[in-house]
Amino acid sequence: MTQYIVLSAILFTIGCVGVLTRRNAIVVFMCVELMLNACNLAFVAFARQHGNLDGQITAFFVMVVAAAEVVIGLAIIMTIFRTRRSASVDDASLLKY
């Protein structure tokens, strides 16, 4: 059981670092998805650990929310790209001091 959780933690951390280091908004988004998936893995593993299906249900909900989030997120990225001709998250940095 521990190995699943450790794998989940490792994937989550990699996702984190990806979000922090990549600049292409789409890749950043993919890293966010990677983090969500890592969480899902932990949920499913814990569902098996505890012998009830609540964890799986939660993972299912996470997927649904992730789908909604991706739809909106990608739409936003497209809108930004349309106006700024760039998909770099660093270019959208006008809201500052």
């Binding site: 959780i5 951390t13 984190c16 922090l20 098996r48 650990q49 012998g51």
Partner: peptide
């Protein structure tokens, strides 16, 4: 920070005893 976060998570998880897997 990522390495520290991952290390802390992994170390923390490895400290936990999960007990017997109930199974589905």
């Amino acid at each position: 920070l990522g390495l520290a976060f991952g290390t802390v998570l992994v170390l923390g998880i490895s400290q936990v005893t999960f007990g017997v897997v109930v199974g589905l």
